[in-house]
Amino acid sequence: MEKGKVLSLEDRIPKIKEHRRKKANRRLIILLSVFFLLIVVVVYFQSPLSHIKEIDIQGNKIASKEDILSISGLEPGGSLWNINQKNVRKKIKKLPEVKDIDVKIKFPNTVEVHIKEHSSLALLMNDHRVQPVLENGQVLQEKNSLLMNAPILIGFKEDEILKDLISQLKDIPTEIYYSISEIQHDPKNTDPYHIYLYMNDGNEVNATISTLAEKMAHYPSVVGQLDPNIKGVIDFEVGSFFRAYENEGEDMSEEGER
């Protein structure tokens, strides 16, 4: 046996008692902490802090806050912890205007709803009503918050032709898109997709929907070759031709193939 001091039982008992006392104190502190935590949780759930005080809706320009709240199922006074964020997102995305949505609970009692909407690309004239047409082809009921710079569509129906047009408008460069004042559907026997575009600069464009974005990309260069004091029709249906209004009875003069 190695040399060293051997503690007697009498010497060891006080240290064992001290160790047991400290261990018992730690257990007591843990139990008291859990007890008080449970009390705090119970008080919290019974207090107004656990109920929805504010619903903050952001990002909506077309869909109204009233419509979003109504379909979401959220309401002030409801329990914060009964909110199923996945279900709330699913409900709100039923609105045709809504492209994406994020729902967050912000301490202590606020629900934040961040909306991303489909862009409104045109205004459909239908039975003397003006209806926004979204980038996904959906036609909405009349809204107060319309895009005033969006092209007005005349003679269109809610069908595949309209959806094809919207698909083309998405691909037109922004500066050219905003220069379009009105688009009129003028179907022909040989081309049910034939349209006329009336531009803000006073010119008119003769085109077909299937090649609209491709041909309209050349609009600035074609107009740049023309006398700014002479307005007329630019034909993009086949090539690129210009006919001045005052020479409407004459043959079109070719400005160049595109």
Score class of each variant (00 low, 15 high):
3 K>W: 07
6 V>A: 03
7 L>S: 11
12 R>E: 13
17 K>S: 14
20 R>C: 06
22 K>D: 14
23 K>C: 05
26 R>A: 10
26 R>F: 05
28 L>F: 14
32 L>K: 05
34 V>G: 10
35 F>T: 00
37 L>I: 07
38 L>H: 05
40 V>Q: 07
42 V>T: 04
42 V>P: 07
48 P>A: 05
58 Q>P: 06
59 G>E: 00
63 A>S: 09
64 S>K: 04
70 S>P: 07
71 I>W: 01
73 G>D: 04
74 L>S: 04
74 L>T: 00
74 L>Y: 06
80 L>V: 02
82 N>E: 14
83 I>G: 05
83 I>V: 11
85 Q>F: 07
87 N>P: 10
91 K>E: 11
92 I>C: 01
94 K>L: 08
100 D>G: 11
102 D>G: 11
103 V>S: 05
103 V>W: 04
108 P>H: 02
109 N>I: 01
111 V>L: 03
114 H>M: 12
114 H>R: 10
119 S>A: 12
125 M>N: 12
127 D>F: 15
129 R>S: 15
129 R>F: 13
131 Q>P: 05
131 Q>T: 09
132 P>A: 08
142 E>V: 14
144 N>C: 07
144 N>H: 09
148 M>D: 15
153 L>G: 06
155 G>A: 02
155 G>V: 00
156 F>P: 02
160 E>K: 09
163 K>F: 07
167 S>P: 04
171 D>K: 07
175 E>K: 08
176 I>N: 08
178 Y>P: 08
180 I>D: 01
184 Q>D: 12
185 H>I: 00
186 D>R: 09
188 K>C: 04
192 P>R: 00
194 H>D: 08
196 Y>C: 08
198 Y>L: 10
200 N>G: 09
202 G>D: 03
202 G>F: 01
204 E>S: 10
204 E>Q: 11
205 V>Q: 09
205 V>T: 02
212 L>R: 03
217 A>I: 12
221 S>A: 13
224 G>M: 01
225 Q>A: 14
225 Q>Y: 09
228 P>K: 03
238 V>P: 14
240 S>D: 11
242 F>C: 08
246 E>F: 11
247 N>S: 12
252 M>E: 15
254 E>K: 10
255 E>V: 13
256 G>Q: 04
256 G>N: 08
